[in-house]
Amino acid sequence: MSFLKRFAITAAVVVLATGAAGAQDMKKVKIGTEGAYPPFNYIDSNGELKGFDIDIAKALCTAMKADCEFVTQDWDGIIPALQAGKFDAIIASMSITEERMKQVDFTNKYYNTPPAIAVAKDSTLAGATPADLKGVTLGAQASTTHGNFAEAKYGESEIKLYPTAEEYKLDLVNGRLDAVMDDSVVLGEWLKTPEGACCKLLGTLTPDPAIHGPGAGIAIRQGDTELKEMFNTAIDAIRADGTYQKINAEYFDFDVYGG
């Protein structure tokens, strides 16, 4: 066999192989996330995206045989960025709410945890009801269900809204805030860290369905039903085959999927 012939055959094999791989047609999905909401999504000390949302997203992508790529985006602009096509889906612990449904479509929920309030360890506050927190400075993240809930139900408190969860945590530590409101898991996990040693959980709140919605879902552009169905099927699949439970166990000692 001449060198030229061997070369031609090798080349043909390579072309066929790559063609076959290409023929599998991996759907490319760009996923937007915030990267500032531990333990759900955050950037670790190595600069890598980590968290429950990220692991669930990766599992969903494997289940629907999609090639996924992550994009981090400030919370404030995450819905407009989805609408502008910067990415195809938001997997960032976004609660499914009426207000957001006017802008984007949601898949079914992939977890649901109640809100809670945290205070300094030496706080004299006894309860977490609006009456207990009258006149108290209460912090939450802006543009979130928690921020909206605080403004709607804790009108007697002084509400301060922050761009990310990191900032209200800083202000609770340094005493600018008397209390903060967020997801019970987010607060609970933070209280276990050295930075959260200052503080304790005051109480878990009953979610308001009109404000908090049924839980966190994946947001996609309106009318993108194909992707929505793919995600819904994938959520069911990872719930059925135990992948979800495995990821759940890595992060939490209870079932975050909720009732």
Partner: peptide, 20 residues
Amino acid sequence: SIITVLDLMGETRRAFSRTF
């Protein structure tokens, strides 16, 4: 507006986050 002051920009961002 990023240090919790509800100035013109703060109010604008708040309104936008409610209405998109």
